Amino acid sequence: MKQARRRQSRTCLTFVMTILLGTICLGGLAILVGFGLIPQMANDAFGAPVSTLSPFQRTYLSLQLLIHQDALTLPVNPEAQPVQFLVKEGETANSVAMRLYDLGLIRDREAFRAYLIYSGRDTRIRSGTYTLSAAMNALEIAGKLQDPLSQEVVFNILPGWRAEEIAASLATSGINVNAESFLEAVRQGKKGEEPLASYEGFLFPGSYRFLRDVTAEEMVQAFYHEFERSVTEDLRNAYAQRGLSLVEAVTLASIVQREAVVTEEQPLIASVFYNRLQQNMKLDSDPTVQYALGYGEAWGTWWKVPLTLNDLSVDSPYNTYLYPGLPPGPICNPGLSALQAVAYPAETPYFYFRAACDGSGRHLFARTFEEHLQNACP
């Protein structure tokens, strides 16, 4: 009954507005402006107009908004899903209104354009990618397009970052997630058939797009799903053939990632660690000690360089100078090339490597400890 009355009221209002519009065309504008009836009704329904409108513009646009009130305040489809909408640099309000209408996001493009001009939003539309929906009404969509910042943020994870480094980059990303909540989500790990004590190592490096109001849990799951997609069944089978579980393979890949400066050396470095594991030799990897030490104000980084002899004796299960075998878990989040290097390492006789002395980032490899000592810089 209320809806029927509302439709009847709208019909009457449309009829009255049509008559009033005719009155305006016949010279009655001065009377309407004098009484301020139409502008006041629009002000009550749509807010105050932009101050730069002339009296005629304000009255005419107010009338248009009142006539098309349903088209502006009712969504096209309350059940619609969000879609991405790109506003190009320099695109006009008329072009935006037309494309919104063609995509079925608004009911009436002329009414939408009239509201943009009435409210002054026609000059404040910002370029960028927006998440819009036909479940939003035209007024809500117009408001969304005023955000000077894109609703989406590009967020990057570099290969070799540990979780704390990812968390630290959130502060300047524009994403509304703080470091503490992100790290808590990482430490929660994964439950189920293939549990993970932590997502460290499984936060797959790459470029991601997130809404600014994404949650920490949603971010972690996005990184993990990309890991699941990228680490194929072939890679997993290759790990198993070498006697490694998935966590062990990622742990070894994380060490390879931190040791290698030049990507093409990763299979060589992986071969050294495989050779040492087969001979029950300790891995003696500096990055595992750096991980154990963590962040220090004295060195201002998560990866202390250079390490001292005292550092090599830090008592931590991650210290591969003290404890044989692989550490308890990954020390960083390796990229795909490091994960592939662990699946398909080079076949070499090497048991040692050290940084070359030319500053190239490459390494010198050796079969024996004596050769290793000979590779030391002068």
Rank of each mutant, 00 (worst) to 15 (best):
K2E: 14
I24V: 14
C25R: 13
V33S: 11
L37F: 13
A45M: 14
P49Q: 03
Y60A: 03
H68W: 10
L72D: 01
T73E: 12
Q84A: 09
V96Y: 00
L100C: 00
Y101V: 02
I106F: 01
D108R: 01
R113Q: 14
Y118A: 02
T123Q: 13
R124Q: 15
S133E: 01
S133P: 02
I141H: 00
E164P: 03
A167D: 05
L170G: 12
A171N: 09
N178W: 00
S181R: 14
Q188A: 15
G189I: 10
L196S: 06
F202L: 03
L203M: 04
T215V: 05
V220C: 13
Y224W: 07
E233L: 03
N237D: 14
A238N: 13
Q241V: 10
S245R: 07
A249G: 14
A249S: 11
V250Q: 09
A253E: 07
Q257G: 05
R258E: 15
R258A: 15
Q266L: 05
V272M: 05
R276P: 05
K282T: 04
L283W: 02
D284T: 05
T288Q: 00
Q290A: 04
Y291C: 08
A292C: 03
A292N: 02
E297P: 05
T301S: 15
V305W: 11
T308I: 07
L322G: 07
P328F: 06
Q340K: 15
V342M: 08
E347Q: 15
A356Y: 08
F369K: 10
Q374D: 10
N375F: 12
N375I: 11
A376C: 07
P378Q: 09
